[in-house]
């Protein structure tokens, strides 16, 4: 369960102040597939970063399993991200010198998995996203869609409680985007909690719940009727 409570995020740009989030509050139930959507600059990615312990809000709280992650120190947040959360970024965020399997292995090894076990789990994760034939390719040898699937494999490799996906299909063509979203839907069916930010409404409607943001405020929060 994620509880977002009165979340405010302000940015200082020179003398002026930009309020990206204006007291946003909502809850995400375990196993839910939430899509956060809105126009560019609506604050959706900012919201995801606060929820995913990648940034500190100016005000408010984010509770994950009852713990306020805003009050956690850097070390505790790193530990939380490693153990409980998974991330899928718009630009894939893979380490260029590591192969697909090694990119997935890195956080597993940080968790303490022996190298052999980490490799085994990583290969299994990559198989789940249909990349069993590209295990030893470096990111530069993969297409955008394949890189995004490696990123998903890395996010799910350690069986996180929540996956945060920031515009995972923004750089992909529609066919590849569909493959990526099918993977998310498959994970959701197995009970995985997913929070996905997207500006593409045709993909947002695939989620179980859609929150729409505008100027840092929630303008709608509805269950998907499909």
């Amino acid at each position: 369960m994620i509880i977002v409570e009165n979340l405010v995020k302000k940015f200082k740009t020179g003398d002026s102040e930009l309020i990206a989030l204006k007291g946003v509050s909502f809850k995400v139930a375990e196993g839910q597939f939430l899509a956060i959507t809105g126009k560019s600059g609506s604050g959706k990615s900012t919201l995801l970063y606060q929820m995913g312990a990648l940034d500190f809000p100016t005000n408010g709280s984010v509770y994950i399993d009852g713990k306020d992650i805003v009050k956690m120190g850097n070390r505790e947040r790193t530990e939380l991200r490693l153990m409980e959360l998974g991330y899928v970024f718009q630009d894939y965020a893979l380490l260029p010198e590591l192969t697909a399997v090694e990119n997935v292995m890195a956080p597993l090894m940080m968790q303490g998995a022996p190298k052999k076990q980490a490799r085994m789990i990583s290969e299994e994760s990559l198989r789940k996203v249909g990349l069993e034939h590209k295990l030893y390719n470096k990111p530069s040898q993969l297409s955008g869609g394949e890189q995004q699937r490696v990123s998903i494999a890395r996010a799910i490799g350690h069986n996180p409680k929540i996956i945060f996906a920031d515009e995972p299909t923004a750089n992909l063509d529609s066919e590849t985007s569909k493959i990526v979203l099918d993977i998310f839907l498959g994970l959701h069916k197995k009970g995985q909690t997913i929070v996905m930010v997207t500006h593409e409404s045709e993909y947002a409607v695939l989620a179980e719940r859609i929150i729409r943001l505008s100027d840092g405020e929630i303008i709608s929060d509805e269950k998907n009727k499909q």
Partner: peptide
């Protein structure tokens, strides 16, 4: 899926091993 959370290992060994893994590559 194999879950490897809360593996008891000396805390220093893990980052050292991963640091070596990353540096080598």
């Amino acid at each position: 899926m194999t879950i490897i959370k809360k593996v008891n290992k000396p805390p220093l060994i893990i980052p050292l091993r991963l640091g070596f893994f990353l540096a080598k590559r």
